[in-house]
């Protein structure tokens, strides 16, 4: 069995129509100077996503950097009878734990702390494994990628909770909640890692693997 690229074919990433590959520059396929479009859906055809590795690195590094303010800055501040209390992601989880709401604490811990770290680490390792041209367990690495792609957006749950709390708890000077900069940083981390997972091309994992082995 062969891959589409070995057979001089190119598969549209959207509608999966197969087209001939006239001249493979590795990224975008060109005919003369013009980019080739899919005959069915008009998407620009790529044998692999263009600059997948460097784009994913750029987004990942940006996410890493924003991850610091996301965790150190407060995500919201609660004003209760004039007493103002700010919470970071971690202290928010701790509060829930002290109040005995451990299922909630666990949920927020998974969504806001575990998933982002898992996602950053997985993409980091996948990129390294591709750059080192590793042939180690490609199927598992692809599965890992799919998990990352699937769970990433669920981290937004904490941002939405803050937004809802802010919208609901507006009782003038007695009780009010304000969103703080940490919430925006955290939302940016989630969005950047979603883009990073999107620009990552899992086919690169398989490019170093000989198709005849299977």
């Amino acid at each position: 069995m062969k891959t589409a690229r070995e057979s001089k074919l190119i598969s549209c990433h959207l509608c999966h129509t197969l087209s001939r590959l006239p001249q493979d520059t590795g990224y975008t396929v060109t005919k003369g100077d013009k980019k080739i479009k899919c005959s069915c859906c008009q998407s620009i055809l790529h044998s692999r996503y263009p600059d997948s590795i460097s784009r994913t690195w750029a987004l990942l590094i940006a996410a890493f950097i924003l991850y610091i303010p996301a965790n150190t800055l407060p995500i919201m501040s609660v004003n209760y009878w004039g007493e103002i209390q700010s919470d970071t992601i971690l202290s928010g989880v701790m509060h829930l734990l002290h109040e005995g709401m451990w299922p909630l604490a666990l949920l927020i811990f998974i969504a806001s702390i575990f998933i982002p770290i898992f996602k950053l680490a997985t993409l980091f390792l996948l990129l390294i494994s591709i750059q080192l041209k590793l042939v180690y367990r490609p199927k598992d690495r692809t599965t890992l990628y799919r998990i990352t792609e699937f769970i990433g957006r669920w981290s937004m749950v904490d941002v939405f909770v803050i937004a809802l709390l802010v919208a609901l708890v507006q009782f003038g000077s007695t009780a009010s909640i304000r969103p703080e900069l940490g919430a925006l940083s955290f939302a940016s981390v989630v969005i950047l890692t979603m883009f990073a997972a999107h620009t990552f091309d899992p086919r690169l994992i398989w490019d170093v693997i000989n198709t005849n082995e299977k």
Partner: peptide, 25 residues
Amino acid sequence: ACPDCDLLQSIPLLLPNEFAYCLRC
């Protein structure tokens, strides 16, 4: 061609409620 690993494979006509999976990934 598999969207995740680029392997070309032919898929037979599927019966209702059948799914076809990539042989490799």
